[in-house]
Design a protein around this nucleic acid. Structure first.
Length: 282
DNA sequence: AAGCCCAGCAACCGCACACCT
DNA sequence: CAGGTGTGCGGTTGCTGGGCT
């Protein structure tokens, strides 16, 4: 609504980047760092939109990017995260060091979708394509319901999960820097080490993952809290009549911790605690 | 060899949110 | 508090290269 365009479209290049443009961008960011994308093109002598520069840097030129094929572990992690988070590519990318949201999104659309379909799983809902097909193949279901409190509960049911599939993953790379929660520099890229604890096949893990508006308006009242992801994962048993819902919600655990990529034996990562003392997903 | 088709991926676009004044 | 601006995100587009006819 009357908002000025992000750049002078008439004077900006479009399409594929040339080597020279790449080099200019790299040189500029090396010298001045990231930020102020709007003014960057002019300062760097590029006839590009600031957004275009940012995208080029983030998705292609960043030195900490891990190029190359996705590993099987990454595949499974993406599938698991997608079942939890949906198309939150940036959040998923934050769990995969060296990978970008764009890369993961493309990879999902081109490879994983097909892979899941071949397994008989709907890539969007993570439910079996054929409801009857409850055979030994991997089945990851995520039922998303919206409650009257505008809180989305994602009920993960890993019934019949293949033995090879991680029901719970614990990163054993204890030296993983928590401050690099989201796409930090990974000059020493450590391969993700995932330990899959043995869980008896008959055990059904039913994780209730709540996403959405907080129940305690006095605890979380900022617009930020409501807009961002409040992954309040209840670890308590299903609430009974004697247990107030709020109390259950208070027993929350950071998704980083749950997924196990922050290491440190179930600690909260540095970014998970916000200013009002409430834990939120970082 | 040429043309066509299609998968993969880089890049664009528009919207939403956060921050600042 | 409202409006403007910068940035980030997700969906989509379109180019490119490889395979097939």
């Amino acid at each position: 609504m009357g908002r000025s365009p992000c750049c002078e479209k008439a004077h900006t290049n479009k399409g594929a980047w040339t080597k020279e443009e790449d080099q200019r961008l790299i040189n500029y960011i090396r010298a001045h760092g990231e930020g102020c994308w709007r003014s960057l093109p002019k300062a760097a002598g590029l006839s590009r939109c600031g957004k275009s520069c940012r995208l080029r840097w983030i998705n292609y030129l960043r030195p900490d990017l891990k190029r190359g094929n996705f590993t099987e572990e990454e595949d499974e992690l993406i599938i698991k995260l997608h079942s939890l988070l949906g198309n939150k590519w940036s959040v998923i990318a934050g769990r995969l060091p060296g990978r970008t949201d764009n890369e993961i999104k493309n990879y999902w659309n081109t490879h994983i979708k097909r892979k899941l379909i071949s397994r008989g799983i709907d890539p969007q809902t993570h439910r079996p394509l054929n409801a009857i097909a409850t055979n030994s193949t991997t089945i990851i279901t995520a039922a998303v319901t919206t409650t009257t409190t505008a809180t989305k509960n994602i009920n993960m049911d890993f019934t019949n999960v293949d033995q090879k599939q991680p029901n719970n993953m614990i990163a054993t790379s204890s030296s993983y820097d928590e401050t690099k929660c989201n796409s930090g520099t990974t000059e020493e890229t450590k391969p993700l080490e995932i330990v899959i604890p043995k869980i008896p096949s008959q055990v059904v893990i039913n994780l209730e993952l709540s996403i959405g508006l907080p129940l305690h308006s006095d605890h979380i009242s900022s617009p930020e809290s409501t807009a961002s992801y409040n992954f309040l994962t209840t670890v308590a048993p299903p609430p009974t009549a004697a247990v107030p819902a709020a109390e259950t919600v208070a027993k929350t655990v950071c998704l980083c911790w749950q997924i196990g990529y922050q290491g440190g034996g179930g600690q909260w990562c540095g970014k998970c605690k916000n200013t009002n003392g409430f834990y939120r997903y970082c």
